[in-house]
């Protein structure tokens, strides 16, 4: 029988692949793509919980939909930032941005 655990394991796998993608990305755009994958893993988790153990599955799904909206807003902004960065400094290589360095 397929249980919630199956879905969460799958989600963990996707999340970690996405995370690895973020950590190893050369370009900002690739980071955005990998972050999308992580977001989807989280969504999958939430939906799985909703239909297995949630008390109010319909509410949970409504929240997942809202989450998708917010994630969409984030993607839009992130991609705009990528475009702006490449336009203004000719660099989309994520390693270049090391302002956190002391």
């Amino acid at each position: 029988m397929i249980t919630a655990a199956h879905y969460t394991v799958l989600a963990s796998g996707l999340f970690c692949i996405g995370l690895f993608g973020v950590l190893n990305a050369r370009s900002a755009l690739r980071v955005v793509v990998a972050v999308e994958l992580m977001l989807n893993a989280v969504n999958l988790n939430l939906v799985a919980y909703a239909v297995t153990s949630g008390a109010r599955p319909a509410s949970a799904l409504a929240f997942v939909l809202l989450l998708i909206v917010i994630a969409a807003a984030e993607v839009g902004l992130a991609l705009a930032l990528v475009v702006a960065l490449s336009r203004r400094s000719d660099i989309t290589a994520i390693d270049g941005y090391a302002t956190l360095k002391g």
């Binding site: 702006a84 960065l85 336009r87 203004r88 400094s89 660099i91 270049g96 941005y97 090391a98 302002t99 360095k101």
Partner: peptide, 8 residues
């Protein structure tokens, strides 16, 4: 790079 990031 930091400077140009700041700038942009």
């Amino acid at each position: 790079v930091a400077w140009s990031f700041d700038d942009a």
